[in-house]
Nucleic acid binder design. Structure first.
Length: 424
RNA sequence: GGAGGUAUACCCAAGUUGGCUGAAGGGAUCGGUCUUGAAAACCGACAGGGGUGUAAAAGCCCGCGGGGGUUCGAAUCCCUCUACCUCCUCCA
């Protein structure tokens, strides 16, 4: 959510900056009138309330003195009616305005490349050598099925499409990766570990920006106003919703493993095979709460922490700076990390690292105070995948495949795999 | 699932025959006196947060879990939601 006062006094500028986002900005144009009307009504109702407060103070005094208060009471009865009439109008306008504010995306940072879609994203750096194979590479779903690591068919029977059973060493590999990533971030990168709820309420989904605009992307529980989390970002960021943190408690950084659930509405037919696009997947998420002046430096370190996982796994990747048209709704700046997928002869997204500045903090009302006397300010929030586990499995299977269809286990994972060095 | 209870400021905690409580008191915190320094003691400050307004203020409005209502006026009465606690039931 943007700052209403800022939007009011910098409307043209904000509108221009949002222009390149490719979002529908029709709501934005209604802001000015509603905002004006709102302040006008507030003015009217508060004048009347001040009058009523004054009279309410006088009434007991009049009564005590034995004077007649009836005429004042009668007058205040009318004032009361006017107040409720105005407050009623005001409530409608404020609801409308609030909804509009929730529907305006974040302002891109000045360093974000301007562009329309994913073709305009800018490659920031590349790491690792793309492996060369002297045999025909197999897709990860074939490798995994042949090695009895994943059972797509039975998952389709038991649940439906876009779900998986990991079996045997497949299950073990998934679990090894979760532990490896969590250990790395907790022990080496200094994150505090968290295991969040997988189900959150509407306020939390609104706080991080999934709602109200993207409700169709979420799984909602029947008969409950609860949602399955699409990412641990939601529960972990909302951990501090409606709180004022102390300056000395910042920065806070958490790593959280969770299942993630996405309806993948609008993705029909895309990535239907394999692990790339599932309704349920595992992810290790990194979340930071920082002071505003630190957030852009933090975005770089955070991205580095995610990259470190790929470096240790020796998986080639590249980092892209997302352009204005591909930023997503809530980010001010975002890096995507893409891992090399040999069978598709391309890089595929495996992590997304974003600085939301105060956009989520304002929605979720997460603030901090500088010193004991400071005015509350909004924190800046950031998060990044560190990493999406299923996609990491896919990348390992494909990049580490051998001519005979076996898979060499990356060295750093072997302690987590019972010392095994190859899956065959 | 059944029965009952609680929800006041950073913490504890008064206040429910509606009106000098726009919120007592204590602790913590901050500032000071004393001290070589600290502790203790004593003195002082301490409702915050949001909105409106303004060049900035002042002023005004709203705040006693959230939301609605009754009333000239509500922490105090009514409705509703949420969280927590106790007992029973169930259960990993």
């Amino acid at each position: 959510m943007l700052d209403m006062k800022y939007l009011r006094s910098n409307f043209e500028e904000v509108q221009a900056k949002l222009q390149h986002r490719g979002e529908d900005l029709s709501d934005l144009s209604r802001f000015g009138d509603l905002d004006k009307r709102r302040r006008q009504l507030i003015n009217e109702t508060e004048t009347l309330k001040a009058k009523r407060n004054e009279a309410s103070k006088q009434i007991p005094i009049l009564k005590k003195e034995g004077k007649d208060a009836e005429s004042v009471i009668k007058e205040m009865r009318e004032v009361g009616d006017q107040i409720s009439e105005i407050d009623h109008q005001l409530r409608e306008i404020e609801d409308d305005l609030h909804h509009i504010m929730l529907s305006i995306p974040n302002i891109p940072h000045e360093s974000v490349p301007i562009g329309e879609d994913e073709d305009d994203n800018v490659e920031v750096r590349k790491w690792g050598e793309v492996p060369q194979f002297d045999f025909d590479v197999k897709a990860h779903w074939d490798l995994a099925t042949d090695l009895n690591m994943i059972d797509f068919e039975r998952a389709a029977k038991v649940t439906g499409s876009r779900f998986t059973f990991y079996t045997g060493l497949g299950a073990r590999l998934e679990r090894a990766l979760i532990n490896f990533m969590m250990d790395l971030h907790a022990d080496e990168h200094g994150y505090e570990e968290m295991l969040p709820p997988y189900i959150v309420n509407r306020a939390s989904m609104t706080g991080t920006g999934q709602l109200p605009k993207f409700e169709e992307d979420a799984f909602k529980l029947a008969d409950w106003d609860y949602f399955l989390i699409p990412t641990a970002e939601v529960p972990v960021t909302n951990y501090y919703r409606d709180e004022i943190l102390k300056e000395e408690n910042l920065p806070r950084k958490y790593c959280a493993y969770s299942g993630c659930f996405r309806s993948e509405a609008g993705s029909a037919g895309r990535d239907t095979r394999g692990l790339i696009r599932q309704h349920q997947f595992n992810k290790v998420e990194l979340v930071h709460f920082v002071k505003p002046e630190d957030s852009y430096a933090t975005l770089e370190t955070l991205t580095g922490h995610a990259e470190k996982v790929l470096q240790l796994l020796k998986l080639p990747y590249r980092v892209l700076s997302m352009c204005t048209g591909d930023l997503g709704f809530t980010a001010a700046k975002k890096y995507d990390i893409e891992v090399w997928i040999p069978n598709q002869n391309t890089y595929r997204e495996i992590s997304s690292c974003s600085n939301f500045e105060d956009y989520q903090a304002r929605r979720a009302n997460i603030r901090f105070r500088r010193g004991p006397k400071g005015k509350p300010e909004f924190v800046h929030t950031l998060n990044g995948s560190g990493l999406a586990v299923g996609r990491t499995v896919a990348a390992i299977l494909e990049n580490y495949q051998q001519a005979d269809g076996s898979i060499v286990i990356p060295e750093v994972l072997r302690p987590y795999m019972g010392g095994k060095s190859i899956i065959k």
